[in-house]
């Protein structure tokens, strides 16, 4: 039934400057890359990727970057507060059958879904390199979680200002990796321009790649059409949010514009 289920927040964790994880007791089984719609009754309801899923405990986590009215409000909520949740929605990432050497490229809170994917990949015996990008050291999320999972040799940090790891972009680190080692598959989640760049680089190098795209969502389950992308018309919430880089190459608006709440196009 497509309606929010009311749950009390069971825990809150600070991840980085302006970024928190909200934990909810919910037996929902979400694949890495899938998202939920989170409702603050009387305020609004917005999409968030599932970033933690502990099926034994029956708990999921959503990692929220405070960027505007809704996410700030959500970030200031307390343990015990009621929120509504529905989902999971959309198509998650696929771990290819014969892909052993994987690279995750996460920008900002985009590493939420990729960290869960990395956990699954490791449990299936894949080798994972994680490129974690952020504006600055203070905005880095999950560095410890990823180090624990992969070992620090497999975590490559990039910051725009050089305050941690390599000064530069996720894409610079990705290009270097291509030169240094064999890569079977790349997964990317982050700002639109980064996704466009990663997808282009992978297409040029003929490396399989999946990217998770974000578009303004209303229903989340493929009916309202608000999240359809130009010019191919597929729905980010239903055919996406995870799409192949081959599909990404056909989306002319990727990295260039998106639609706002009214549906008007706005340059990124």
């Amino acid at each position: 039934m497509e309606r929010p289920k009311i749950i009390r927040i069971s825990g809150i964790k600070d991840e980085a400057e302006g970024i928190k994880t909200i934990f909810l007791r919910h037996s929902m089984v979400a694949k890495p890359g899938q998202f939920v719609m989170l409702w603050i009754p009387g305020i609004d309801e917005k999409p968030f990727a599932v970033s933690y899923s502990d099926q034994k405990k029956g708990e999921i986590g959503l990692t929220v970057a405070a960027v505007g009215p809704f996410s700030n409000r959500l970030s200031s909520m307390k343990e015990g507060d009621k929120v509504g949740i529905r989902g999971p929605y959309g198509r998650g990432y696929n771990l290819g059958k014969n892909s052993k050497q994987l690279v995750m490229a996460g920008g900002g809170y985009g590493s939420a879904s990729l960290t869960m994917l990395a956990e699954e990949a490791v449990s299936k015996g894949c080798n994972v390199k994680f490129i974690l990008g952020a504006r600055s050291k203070a905005r880095l999320v999950y560095a410890d979680r990823i180090k624990k999972l992969l070992g620090s040799g497999n975590l490559i940090i990039t910051t725009d200002d050089g305050s941690a790891g390599i000064k530069g972009f996720v894409t610079d680190a990705l290009k270097n990796l291509f030169k240094a080692q064999k890569v079977d598959r790349v997964y990317a989640c982050g700002p639109d321009r980064m996704l466009k760049a990663v997808s282009d680089i992978c297409n040029e190098n003929k490396i399989d790649c999946e990217v998770s795209i974000e578009r303004y969502m209303k229903c989340g389950f493929g009916l309202c059409g608000h999240c359809c992308v130009d010019p191919i018309g597929i729905r980010a919430c239903a055919e996406g949010p995870v799409i192949s880089s081959a599909q990404a190459a056909k989306i002319s608006e990727l990295g260039s514009y998106h639609r706002v709440k009214s549906s008007r196009k706005e340059k990124l």
Partner: peptide, 26 residues
């Protein structure tokens, strides 16, 4: 241009949906 209503704009019940999208359009 109209933004339409805040979410939720669609909700299911056992034999259908209710919507109040609020005619968003540019």
């Amino acid at each position: 241009e109209r933004e339409g209503h805040a979410n939720p704009v669609l909700v299911e019940f056992d034999k259908g949906f209710l919507n109040a999208v609020g005619l968003p359009n540019s």
